[in-house]
């Protein structure tokens, strides 16, 4: 009796050990396979995110209410000062707006005369979405938004808040998308100084202030410069506001992101036609075409 019981306990333990090792290996395999973006898990992940986004949307409602109460309370203390500042800014911006309109007309006429189609680069279409879950952990900085490919969101699209650039889409499901935030360790964005047009790469470091890297020796960067996207990578539109340049104690450049000025609830996605490489958009070789015509082959 005791012997049988002892045997069954032994079998149970062995089975538990076997299941643990098996699941451990599966998890380990999944962990390494999902470290690249083209993982086989992308499809199922997008489906789970779709479901999770709709659940979290309802789950976060009371929390968003609490956040807006806390935000309203803190805003009330600053209301008078803010009102005064806003009035001054409005007066300043009205003047800038009229100048900008005049410049836009002038630019359009010049572009028409020269037959060039430069444009501002910033897409006109916006897709509004709600950030239903934000991950600000030490390992990853990302967010789940409740708009997906059904609304026209695609991989790589820029995601903005009212304050500035938030990140870009790394996975788009039907009704939800995963956004990689600018602070994430894997985030790399081509940026420039609005003042000097000096170029750099905004490199995420899992902290609130990403760094600037790949700065040319003669690049003119200064503390206080406004950082905007340069559009050089052909992935994001140019001129999207990012943040203000600062310096670390080690004398390295870092960027204080505009997006941190407020808590993130609503965002919008900019669908953007990426610049494809010439290989992907190849024009048929003219010489080959001519030979084909001469030989009479279609």
């Amino acid at each position: 009796m005791v012997g049988n019981r002892g045997k069954s306990i032994q079998v149970k333990r062995q089975r538990a050990r076997f299941v643990f090792i098996l699941l451990f290996l599966v998890a380990f395999g999944l962990f390494f396979s999902s470290r690249n973006n083209n993982s086989m898990m992308n499809g199922p992940q997008a489906v789970v995110e779709d479901v999770a986004a709709s659940v979290l949307q309802y789950l976060t409602m009371p929390l968003r209410g609490l956040e807006s109460v806390s935000s309203t309370l803190s805003d009330r203390f600053k209301a008078h000062k803010q009102n005064e500042d806003l009035r001054q800014e409005l007066a300043r911006l009205s003047d800038i707006e009229s100048r900008a309109n005049a410049l836009t007309h002038k630019l359009n006429s010049l572009e028409t005369i020269l037959s060039v189609e430069a444009g501002s680069g910033v897409p006109q279409q916006k897709i509004a979405a709600r950030a239903v879950s934000e991950s600000n952990g030490p390992f990853v900085r990302s967010a789940l938004i409740n708009a997906g490919s059904k609304k026209g969101v695609k991989f790589g699209d820029a995601v903005m808040t009212v304050n500035g650039l938030y990140g870009h889409v790394v996975r788009a499901g039907n009704n939800s998308s995963r956004v990689l935030k600018l602070e994430d360790l894997n985030s790399r964005i081509a940026v420039m100084s609005e003042r000097s047009q000096a170029r750099a790469i905004l490199t995420g470091n899992n902290s609130r202030k990403p760094g600037l890297s790949f700065i040319a020796d003669d690049a003119d960067w200064q503390v206080g410069d406004v950082v905007v996207t340069s559009g050089d990578d052909g992935v994001l539109p140019a001129a999207l506001p990012v943040g203000i340049v600062g310096k670390t104690p080690n004398d390295l450049y870092q960027v204080d992101l505009f997006v941190h000025q407020n808590f993130v609830d609503w965002v919008w996605v900019y669908p953007f036609q990426k610049t494809s490489p010439p290989e992907a958009d190849a024009v048929p070789d003219l010489a080959e075409e001519l030979t084909a015509v001469e030989c009479g082959t279609p």
Binding site: L23, V26, A27, L30, F31, S33, S133, S135, G137
Partner: peptide
């Protein structure tokens, strides 16, 4: 992992 956007398998491990 899916909800927080970490590499799949990390939290399971």
């Amino acid at each position: 992992d899916v909800l927080t956007g970490t590499a799949i398998g990390f939290w399971a491990l």
